[in-house]
Amino acid sequence: MNKKGIGLRPMMTNLSLVLLFSFFMLSFVYTSIEIQNPNSDIFSDTYGLNNSKNSMESTLGNFTDTSDNIFNQIAEDKPTAVDFLFLIFKGAFYIPWTFLSFAITSLNALVVVIFPALAGTGLGSITTTATAIMLSSILVTIVLLTVKAIRTGESER
């Protein structure tokens, strides 16, 4: 490991890119196979590809909901100063919360795909345990980074 990637922020950036890239990858695989071969076995409930794609898409919908809420509140007829003040505070918590939600459900979606894949192939409990420990540590890191961002005021800038 080189020293460039050490630290919370580079690690989080890398992992966020992993989540985003995984989302695009799963979406691409799902969509292309769905178009060419809708009756494929990979869409059965055994493998969880449907579940993971749906949960990822629903979390992406959270961003749209947050955006809609904020635009609706700004577009009200008689916004007062209190409304704007409240909006700023609300946005300061809503946006980190949405990122946290995206990260957690994306991890969950990855686990839904990875674990059935590894479980039936005899790769062993060591791989499963190692993956669980790694994903747990990622989750703890995400929570710590969110707490740090709120405490230091980075989320309000």
């Binding site: 080189n2 992993v18 795909v113 990875i114 894949a117």
Partner: peptide, 19 residues
Amino acid sequence: FFVIIGITILSMIWVAVGD
């Protein structure tokens, strides 16, 4: 097919954590 998806995701995490 799902083993390949699993290996790809784990490789991505390996590169992200190791770099």
